[in-house]
Design a protein around this nucleic acid. Sequence first.
DNA 1: AGACGTACCTGACCGC
DNA 2: TGCGGTCAGGTACGTC
Length: 272
Amino acid sequence: MPELPEVETICRGLEPKLAGSTITAAKSNTPKLRIAMPTKLEQKLKNKTITAIKRRAKYIIIELDDELSLVIHLGMSGRVTVTKNYQAKKHDHLVLKLSNGQTMALNDPRRFGLVALIPTAEIDSDKLFVNLGIEPLSTKFNGAYLANLIQKRHRDIKSCIMDASLVVGVGNIYASESLYLSKIHPEREAATLSNKECEELSKAIKQTLKAAIKAGGSSLRDYRQADGEMGYFQHSFKVYDQSGQPCHKCKTAIVRIKQAGRSTYYCPNCQI
DNA sequence: AGACGTACCTGACCGC
DNA sequence: TGCGGTCAGGTACGTC
């Protein structure tokens, strides 16, 4: 489930725990998640030192000292834990023992996530990354950029902002939240958005994601003090999962609809 | 090219 | 207690 803010928070949490440590042992427990586990994964990871943790879209990129990167996607249900006293759990697919005494585990019940080993220099051109759209928090992403992206799109706007080939990191929760903040109806045909609306929406996406990252940072402080899980944080949503609750602005009941098989929440009065 | 449906998988929850 | 249905925060692929 993790969306961009969660993945960003996880990366920030992993950095101090992993960077500089060497993987003393790696154990892969599952032949395949969404894609097959890399061949000889355990041997390839053993005795490698972790140099940096990065993020692109919702991918966690763990850079190793031999020009190879361990790439992890959490899918819908993935979690990462780093603990000193590791105890194996059901659905722990990859377990790394580290030279600092910590153990990192990737747990993913639904197995929609993935693990890949990609030469660091080839990540951008890798199949998993090559079709990814712009990072929403980059300065390049703004109203004009969004307007250009969607000017010929006849799908609804919610599908467009969730389309990772256009803009990455906006999942089902923050799509609803961003549209609410920018007062745009989720079923609006994308191409009909005015330049002003594109400006509002791009700002709303940034604001929503940044606020969630900040909230994740708070969770992270707690996390650092104890062994724990990363991947799910407390959120306070304005519309997501708020069916029937009064809109914060106008008190109209929040409505849930289905778009492309996914739940969308919006205020039928504020969003046009 | 773009839009749309479907598939991947487990687990929690709800009504009967 | 069990069973069937529905739902869940993501992404890739096939088809039209």
